[in-house]
């Protein structure tokens, strides 16, 4: 888990205008055979991003390959982003590629938690707000999008939207805390709980 904090980020966006983007799409199974957390970015969205299996021929129609979105660090998507498999390789791949934040209409639960644990900031906005973001990027791919986590806002051009995030998620992202280290400090409470467990457990 990263221990580097996130406060705000400004970057250009890559739009992925579809719902139900599953983690099999984000990082297909053939790339899950690693034993480390690094190096997944080159395989991000493999099936959509490359025309060939060896990743030599980029698909020119795919958002991430378009010259105007080169260097994007903000990913835009729609409903239920990150559904399906619990693979944490999905946020590892997105972060390794260079994304700092994913802004979508909604997220699948496990993926959302995995993002929090990897300092990849998941921002959920309303569908009309997402329309406005997609429109802004379509009109001007160089539009700078700022996610301000302490203020809980997404800003671009003259527009600013607020977003919700649970206070503990926000704190963990901002402070980049070692969650395990924090829980280990509660060792006596855990031991006390264990002492009360019934015999069959």
């Amino acid at each position: 888990m990263s221990e580097q904090g996130f406060t705000h980020h400004t970057g250009i966006a890559a739009p992925l205008d579809q719902a139900n983007v599953d983690t099999d799409q984000i990082i297909p199974k053939q790339f899950l055979t690693g034993v480390t957390r690094i190096g997944y970015g080159k395989h991000l969205f493999h099936d959509w991003r490359y025309l060939d299996l060896k990743e030599q021929e980029p698909n020119p129609d795919f958002s991430l390959n378009k010259p105007e979105h080169k260097g994007a660090s903000v990913l835009l998507a729609r409903e239920n982003f990150g559904c399906g498999s619990s693979r944490e390789h999905a946020p590892w791949a997105l972060a390794d590629f260079g994304f700092k934040t994913v802004i979508a209409t909604s997220f699948a639960d496990i993926f959302y938690g995995n993002c929090i644990n990897n300092q990849l900031v998941p921002v959920a906005l309303g569908s009309e707000q997402m329309d406005a973001l997609f429109d802004a990027v379509k009109a001007d791919p160089t539009v700078a999008i700022t996610v301000d986590l302490p203020a809980q806002t997404v800003s671009f051009n003259d527009t600013s939207f607020s977003f919700d995030i649970a206070p503990h998620h926000k704190t963990n992202l901002i402070k980049g805390l070692d969650a395990i280290g924090q829980t280990l400090e509660l060792d006596s409470a855990i031991s006390a709980f264990e002492d009360k467990q019934p015999s069959w457990l």
């Binding site: 888990m1 990897n118 395990i180 280990l184």
Partner: peptide, 14 residues
Amino acid sequence: IGTSQVEHVLATQT
């Protein structure tokens, strides 16, 4: 759960 949580459970059982 994700792998960071697997690590959390291994270390803390919580």
